[in-house]
């Protein structure tokens, strides 16, 4: 139950921040793409769907545990599009207390 709350809250905070920047449609597209990538990695996310307002549907206990994969892909997509520096800035706007030293991105050499 706790995991479900955490994933929902993280996605919602990102949704509010990114919707202002990219629009609701823009955020929804980004999250849908992240979900597709995450589902390939964690089939338990198969029950998840992105609703038209950019919120998540079907987040059950098992999927919530794998929710971090979804968030990782969402952040990964942001890095792909706008780079690490701007992504970090946006994340800091959402979570101002997040210490910089705790934010580390691993480079995906395949990209």
């Amino acid at each position: 139950m706790e995991d479900i709350d955490v994933v929902s809250r993280v996605c919602d905070k990102l949704r509010r921040s990114l919707t202002a920047l990219a629009g609701a449609v823009g955020f929804r597209s980004l999250l849908a793409r992240a979900l597709t990538l995450a589902q390939q990695e964690s089939p338990v996310l198969g029950s998840l769907e992105v609703k038209s307002d950019g919120s998540l549907q079907g987040l059950n206990g098992e999927a919530a545990q794998a929710g971090v994969v979804l968030i990782a892909h969402l952040v990964g997509l942001m890095i792909t599009f706008i780079g690490e520096s701007i992504t970090l800035r946006l994340l800091h706007d959402v979570w101002p207390d997040l210490p910089e030293s705790e934010v580390k991105f691993e480079k995906d050499e395949s990209k």
């Binding site: 920047l21 629009g23 980004l30 599009f81 706008i82 780079g83 701007i86």
Partner: peptide, 11 residues
């Protein structure tokens, strides 16, 4: 132009 793409190129 979507803002994300704008940021991608303008940076």
């Amino acid at each position: 132009e979507p803002a994300l793409k704008m940021l991608r190129y303008q940076q």
